[in-house]
């Protein structure tokens, strides 16, 4: 079941239409455009709601994605690199989002810093192929993971606040 906050999050991310993966030449370009349009809208909605929490970009084929995500804890901003590949079976299977710098620091990760998703994520994704895209994977996968794991990692002293020159 989808709870109220998830429902609200989902309403901020435009749905996608084209069922195409990186092996489908022209259709994939169509899908990629939808991905970008959806992500742009989602990030804008986040900014408008004062809840800006990630940036992503991709290689020109749209198969490798990278960027940053950040999380506020006690008014301090913790920032992490994000990366993932689009699997050949996308969008039937979701991308496996990784935070490489946290690899080995928490049991809630698979090898390579891939985050451990909740039991709810896969069924929800499977029910919404091909409407869910990268924005949904971020919102339903990475968002809740950060909210649970980062405060815990801070409390355990595994990660520390790094002074950064703010240029945004």
């Amino acid at each position: 079941m989808v709870d109220e906050s998830t429902r609200k999050t989902l309403s901020n991310i435009p749905l996608l239409r084209t069922k195409a993966g990186p092996r489908d030449k022209e259709l994939w370009v169509e899908r990629l455009k939808e991905e970008y349009q959806s992500l742009i809208k989602y990030v804008q909605n986040n900014k408008d709601a004062d809840n800006d929490w990630f940036r992503l970009e991709s290689n020109k084929e749209g198969t490798k994605w990278f960027g940053k995500c950040w999380f506020f804890h006690d008014q301090l901003k913790y920032e992490f690199d994000v990366e993932f590949d689009i699997p050949v079976t996308y969008p039937t299977t979701a991308p496996e989002i990784a935070l490489p710098e946290l690899d080995g620091k928490t049991a809630k990760m698979y090898r390579g810093g891939k985050i451990c998703l909740s039991d709810h994520f896969k069924p929800l994704w499977a029910r919404n192929v091909p409407k869910f895209g990268i924005g949904h994977a971020m919102a339903l996968g990475l968002g809740p993971w950060l909210a649970v794991e980062i405060p815990d990692l801070i409390a355990k002293g595994v990660i520390h606040y790094k002074e950064k020159v703010e240029n945004t």
């Binding site: 989808v2 996608l16 455009k33 349009q37 919404n128």
Partner: peptide, 18 residues
């Protein structure tokens, strides 16, 4: 899925390039 009834589709204006 009913949970998505508020979400809109990404507007596919094909005149915008990737």
């Amino acid at each position: 899925d009913k949970s998505l009834e508020h979400a809109k589709e990404a507007s596919t204006t094909s005149d915008v390039s990737l």
